[in-house]
């Protein structure tokens, strides 16, 4: 299987993979805690997109029963991934909230969110 055949028709998935990598890189390599958090958000967003892309069908409409379309299942998008992702978005917002709360406390205590500076101050605490 050559590369082109692999990619063609899978552009959205490729896009989510790129997003995942960007997010992961942000989380692991950025030294600023807020940037780490942003990376985490991108990572979660990529996964949400992954589900939604899977549910997407060309030419289909929202999964609300429509008299004109009738009971043709293939004319509606799959509602389950969308429902799931609503929950996942809620979870991700909650996570972000907790993370921001933690960052505020850290900033109050140490006056910085840069990892290098923070580590130094942590060491002074001992």
């Amino acid at each position: 299987m050559d590369l082109e055949a692999l990619i063609t028709g899978r552009w959205p998935y490729l896009f989510t993979v790129v997003l995942l990598i960007i997010g992961l890189r942000g989380m692991l390599l950025k030294s600023n805690f807020v940037k780490k958090l942003i990376g985490m958000n991108i990572f979660q967003g990529a996964i949400i997109l992954f589900y939604v892309v899977h549910a997407y069908k060309l030419g289909a409409t929202v999964p609300v029963f429509d008299k004109h379309l009738g009971e043709h299942a293939d004319l509606y998008m799959n509602p389950i991934p969308h429902g799931l992702m609503l929950t996942a978005i809620v979870v991700s917002v909650a996570t972000t909230g907790v993370a921001l709360a933690l960052l505020i406390v850290i900033h109050r205590r140490y006056g910085t969110l840069e990892e290098g500076l923070l580590l130094e101050k942590l060491r002074q605490d001992d």
């Binding site: 992961l24 989380m27 805690f33 780490k36 958090l37 985490m40 990572f43 979660q44 996964i47 996942a88 979870v91 996570t95 907790v98 993370a99 933690l102 960052l103 406390v105 850290i106 205590r109 140490y110 923070l118 942590l122 605490d125």
Partner: peptide, 22 residues
């Protein structure tokens, strides 16, 4: 005093884990 920093680190890694699961 250092607990929030440790918790934040755990949060980042924990979210990676949860996302992998998802």
């Amino acid at each position: 005093r250092k607990a929030p920093v440790a918790a934040f680190r755990y949060l980042i890694l924990g979210t990676v884990g949860a996302s992998c699961y998802l």
